[in-house]
Design a protein around this nucleic acid. Sequence first.
RNA 1: GCCCCUAUCGUCUAGCCAGGUUAGGACACCAGCCUUUCAAGCUGGCGACACGGGUUCGAAUCCCGUUGGGGGUACCA
Length: 494
Amino acid sequence: MSKAPIRGPVRVRFAPSPTGFLHVGGARTAIYNELMRQTLGGAHILRIEDTDKARSDDAMTRQIIDALDWLGVEIDEGPFLQSERGDRHRAAAHQLLAEDKAYHCFRTPDELDARRREILGRGESYSYRTAFEQPSRAEVERRIEAGEPYAVRFRMPDHDLVVEDFVRGDVTFPAEALDDFIILRSDGTPTYHLSVVCDDIDMGVTHVVRGEDHLSNTPKHLGLFRGLAAEPPAFGHLPLILGADRKRLSKRSGATSVEEFRDLGIMPQALYNYLALLGWSPGDDREVMGRDEMIEAFSAERLGKTAAVFDLDKLKWVNALWMSKIELDELLGHLRPFLEPVGLLDRADSERLRTAADVHRRRAKDLRELAEQLVPYFEERLDYDAERWKKFVAQEELPALLEDLWQRYEALERFDIESTEAALRALATEHEKKAGFLIHPVRVALSNSKAGPPLFDLVVAMGREDGRRHMAQFVDFLRRSRSATASAGSDAGA
RNA sequence: GCCCCUAUCGUCUAGCCAGGUUAGGACACCAGCCUUUCAAGCUGGCGACACGGGUUCGAAUCCCGUUGGGGGUACCA
């Protein structure tokens, strides 16, 4: 294990391809990159790997930037578009060609494919270098002259290559496993490998933190760095994030992108927190950590190397904690988009919504749930069900007691938690009832539900005015249901 | 097929590099407490070193192998 301590300042980069959304795996990579940058100093560069893509990815790039911004990942430089640097990449290819570190390849993709299949079919192992004869210099000249299309292929070293990976240790790739690869397509466009290496050189990248799916590409990049006479950066390959099926996290395992989790009602702090913990730990028992605390505790040496299964339950748990932890105004800000679907957008700035959200934040796992829990506070009338609340219907003295209670509430000088509770308890005592005898029906009267926050929080959040209306309707409901069942009962008896 | 990575509770992980722990924490699950309900919170429980060989007085920890999982093997990125 060559785990030399990592020293700053570092120049790191996050280099997603513009697929139209930010995958959580990518988001985690971005988080670790930024954490390295924050702890060691330097710069975090955003580079969009849009090599060979249609030019229409402005929107996709925008989306990635928005997602990073929402998550709270800071970028110091960029975004740079790889597609705009094609000239530089081509120049590098021609330089390698001139130095004989790369060569012309006249084989067509079909020809390559056929040969590969043939060799593999015999059970032998394929490599371009052993499968094809190299044409003579004169022949190459002739074919270029004749205008034959060609790709440019990089000559890989013929000795073992060692990737000194700071999360995995030294990884050796045997010479036989190394093969010459294409850096310039026959249409003149650079391939990914060439582009990355050129850009990393030009941008002065010192540390490459990326997914494990790139580990096998790294020898290619090492070859290229040396070919271009540049000192390669340090590499760290992160394990992949898996779905519950232990396969690479994909659509079929549920939500996979930052945007989707946002729309599900996950808070950015929670996703940041959860993702950072998927493959890294501070080494002690801390789990709920904000970005600042992460920055303080982070060290790349503690990055894990085993693939992690994405656990939505735990994300929701972290989310619930953050929902009750942050400033109310910030919570309200995140909640806002979820108010519209439940028809509460015009109440977004009301005092009642504020109070209710504060009371309910502890009982919701996500913002969507929270928004739903707020709906009853703004209902004009509640639709009580006689069957569901038959227990209260059956209690003869209840309507009068509730009316009495509300009269006392009307007379209250201050309509707050203490006084409403005191008044209710006093009334219950006078009638030799337990407080619960009144508490439960009052809850139902105000919310049409038997579950919810502590009753007097509910009473106060609802307010005197709407409480009065709901109570009147509930009492009326109790009386009508009671007479209905009574007459039904006498009919049956007759 | 070949190359590479990886392996601690169902899940995320600490411990491994510098062998000696009742293998620790968290999510989930179960029970109890609290309580006006539902949550939250608190307490407790369940639950793991993939397997086989070595090395050693002693192995989760070091070595080898097997098996499992993942990645790569393109004129994709």
